[in-house]
Simulated assay, not measured.
Amino acid sequence: MRARRHRAEGTREKGAAAVEFALIVPILLALVLGIVEFGHIYNAQLVITNAAREAARTMAVTGDPGTALTAAQSVAPGFALTVSPQPLACVTDPTNAKLKQVTATVTSNVPLIAGTWLNPAGTISISGVGVMRCEG
């Protein structure tokens, strides 16, 4: 009789472990998905900010808005970028009338890895700003 009682208690503990595992797994998976999603969005932010900086730098050096837009797109090939203001131009610095600068703001809608689970739209809008002093 004792052998049977001992075996029944072990089975109950296995069942409790399975229930605990079933309760914890969704929380752990959500945590891992959140970490991956954060890394994805942070990487997109860096790429878009670099695209804005490259657009401003190219505009400041060449003075050609078309070349600046091409330079921004070459830095972020996987993103559909919107560059503003249109057209990019060197304007007088508000703090120093002797200097001219160009400000490029690049925006893109980045799809989320989790899709609509975290955000009903399934995308997040990310923007970056680049400012450079114009030559000459």
Rank of each mutant, 00 (worst) to 15 (best):
M1E: 10
R4W: 11
H6N: 07
R7W: 04
A8M: 11
E9Y: 06
G10D: 11
T11E: 12
R12M: 15
E13K: 10
E13L: 15
L23K: 14
I24Y: 10
I24S: 15
I24D: 08
I24E: 11
I27G: 01
L28F: 15
L28A: 14
L31D: 01
L31E: 03
L31T: 15
L33P: 00
L33F: 14
N43W: 14
V47S: 00
N50D: 12
A52P: 00
A52V: 01
R53H: 09
R57A: 14
R57P: 08
T58S: 06
M59V: 09
M59N: 03
V61S: 02
T62S: 07
G63I: 08
D64P: 04
P65I: 10
T67N: 11
L69A: 14
L69F: 11
A71P: 01
A71F: 04
V75W: 10
P77H: 12
P77S: 09
P77A: 09
A80P: 02
L81K: 03
V83F: 08
V83N: 04
P85V: 09
P85E: 05
Q86K: 08
A89H: 05
A89Q: 14
D93S: 04
D93R: 06
T95K: 13
N96M: 11
K98Q: 15
K100A: 04
K100W: 06
N109T: 12
P111Y: 12
I113G: 02
A114C: 10
W117R: 15
G122M: 07
G122L: 08
I124H: 09
G128P: 03
G130K: 02
V131N: 03
R133C: 00
